[in-house]
Amino acid sequence: MEITGIITAIVIGVVVGVLGRLVLPGRQHIGVLWTIVVGIAAALIGTFIAAGIGVADTRGVDWIELFIQIGLAAVGVAAVDRAKVRV
């Protein structure tokens, strides 16, 4: 993977992670790095799911893919938040 691909993954991870946190009500007790990690994972998994159901290759913005990624990020942020509270 090239450096531009890594930087792009981090930027998309930040955006998806932050949007996932905004979807959840209340305050989440996780840091910025966890948000980025969850966002990157949600973006990758969401892309694979969107490709699997055939909605990843559309003209313009892939809204369905983005909504899948944000939903996965919200679930991931909630899971990390719960795991950190119990530890």
Results as ranks from 00 to 15, higher is better:
Arg86Glu: 10
Val18Asp: 01
Val23Lys: 07
Gly5Glu: 10
Gly31His: 08
Val11Tyr: 00
Val38Tyr: 08
Val18Ile: 11
Leu24Asn: 14
Ile36Cys: 11
Val75Gln: 08
Phe67Gly: 04
Gly13Ala: 08
Val15Gly: 00
Val55Met: 13
Val32His: 07
Ile64His: 13
Thr47Gly: 09
Gly46Lys: 00
Val32Glu: 04
Asp62Gln: 06
Gly20Tyr: 14
Leu19Asp: 02
Phe67His: 04
Thr8Ile: 10
Gln28Met: 13
Asp81Val: 08
Val55Ala: 04
Val75Ser: 11
Val55Cys: 13
Val75Met: 13
Ala79Tyr: 08
Gly76Thr: 11
Gly31Glu: 06
Gly20Asn: 11
Gly60Val: 03
Leu66Tyr: 00
Ala42Asn: 10
Leu24His: 09
Ile53Tyr: 12
Ile70Leu: 12
Leu22Trp: 11
Val11Asn: 03
Ala73His: 14
Gly52Ala: 13
Gly31Cys: 06
Thr35Lys: 06
Thr4Glu: 14
Phe67Tyr: 07
Val80Thr: 04
Arg82Lys: 06
Ile49Val: 15
Gly39Trp: 07
Val38Arg: 01
Gly52Thr: 14
Val14His: 00
Arg27Ser: 13
Thr35Arg: 06
Val18Tyr: 07
Thr47Tyr: 11
Val75Glu: 10
Ile68Trp: 01
Trp34Cys: 04
Ala50Asn: 09
Val14Cys: 10
Gly39Ser: 05
Thr47Pro: 02
Val85Asn: 10
Val87Ile: 12
Ala74Met: 11
Ile30Thr: 09
Ala83Met: 10
Val14Pro: 00
Ile45Gly: 04
Thr58Pro: 02
Gln28Ser: 13
Thr58Phe: 01
Glu2Asp: 15
Asp62Arg: 00
Ala51Asp: 13
Ile30Asn: 05
Ile30Val: 15
Arg59Glu: 15
Phe67Leu: 12
Ile70Ala: 07
Val77Gly: 06
Ile12Gly: 10
Glu65Gln: 02
Phe48Gln: 07
Glu2Ile: 11
Gly71Asp: 08
Arg27Ala: 12
Arg82Ala: 08
Val23His: 05
Leu72Pro: 04
Ile45Trp: 02
Val80Asp: 01
Ala78Val: 00
Ala41Gln: 06
Leu19Val: 10
Ile40Phe: 03
Trp34His: 15
Asp62Leu: 01
Arg21Gly: 15
Gly76Ser: 11
Val11Phe: 00
Thr35Asn: 02
Gly26Ser: 09
Gly39Thr: 09
Gln69Thr: 06
Ile3Phe: 12
Ile6Val: 12
Asp57Pro: 05
Gly26Thr: 07
His29Lys: 12
Val11Gln: 02
Val61Gln: 01
Val61Asp: 06
Gly5Val: 02
Glu65Ala: 01
Gln69Arg: 09
Asp57Arg: 14
Ile36Glu: 09
Ala42Asp: 14
Arg86Asn: 05
Ala74Thr: 08
Val75Asp: 01
Arg86Thr: 07
Val37Arg: 02
Ile30Ser: 03
Ala43Glu: 04
Val38Lys: 03
Trp34Tyr: 15
Ala9Cys: 03
Ala83Asn: 13
Glu65Trp: 00
Ile64Asp: 09
Arg27Glu: 15
Trp63Ile: 14
